[in-house]
């Protein structure tokens, strides 16, 4: 039996129907066509499906759609504001920190969560925070540099 769920997604009220077994990543992608959230494994190992759930960073493949009743979900689609990329997105592009780009949405969401918690992370802190976001293309070098660079931009803006 499908369940009726009311949530807030990227600051907009969104209601959907979903089966009890459906993951949040599947609801976002298949039912709401918010395909910026990617699925690389659906077992919580790759981080491509990273979203914010009530301001907590989660793998949306490990959350059930029905669990999100009354909660607020922020996905990669909500990161850029009115045609302006977020500094993390800008820096990822400047540093050429994506090759295929499939890991990128998850990295954007995850890095943003880090910089909101910690404005001045060390390289090691960025590496450990992003250890849950697999990237097979880049070897991470440019991703780490981009996030550190974005952190300094955000500190200046603050």
């Amino acid at each position: 039996m499908a369940t009726h769920v009311k949530t807030t997604i990227n600051n907009e009220a969104v209601e959907f129907l979903c089966e009890p077994h459906e993951s949040l990543s599947s609801v976002l992608r298949e039912r709401l066509h918010l395909t910026g959230t990617k699925e690389g494994c659906t077992t919580g190992d790759c981080g491509a499906c990273s979203v914010m759930l009530d301001d907590r960073l989660v793998c949306s493949c490990l959350v059930l759609g029905v669990e999100t009743e009354g909660m607020s979900i922020d996905t990669v689609e909500g990161v850029a504001k009115a045609d302006k990329l977020h500094p993390i997105q800008e820096k990822l592009l400047e540093h050429a920190a994506l090759q295929c780009g499939i890991c990128t949405p998850g990295i954007v969401v995850s890095a943003k969560a880090l910089l909101e918690k910690k404005a001045d992370p060390t390289e090691e802190e960025v590496r450990f925070w992003l250890a849950g976001n697999l990237c097979r293309c880049t070897g991470y070098d440019k991703i780490i540099r981009a996030v550190l660079d974005a952190a300094s931009v955000l500190r200046e803006e603050a």
């Binding site: 992608r29 918010l34 395909t35 910026g36 959230t37 990617k38 699925e39 996905t75 990669v76 689609e77 990161v79 850029a80 990329l85 997105q89 990822l92 592009l93 400047e94 050429a96 994506l98 780009g101 499939i102 990128t104 949405p105 954007v108």
Partner: peptide, 19 residues
């Protein structure tokens, strides 16, 4: 240079195989 498909790939707009 900034890659031409960049904005779509950092915002989740780009369509991959399963999208």
């Amino acid at each position: 240079s900034i890659r031409p498909d960049g904005a779509d790939k950092v915002t989740g707009r780009a369509n991959y195989g399963a999208d």
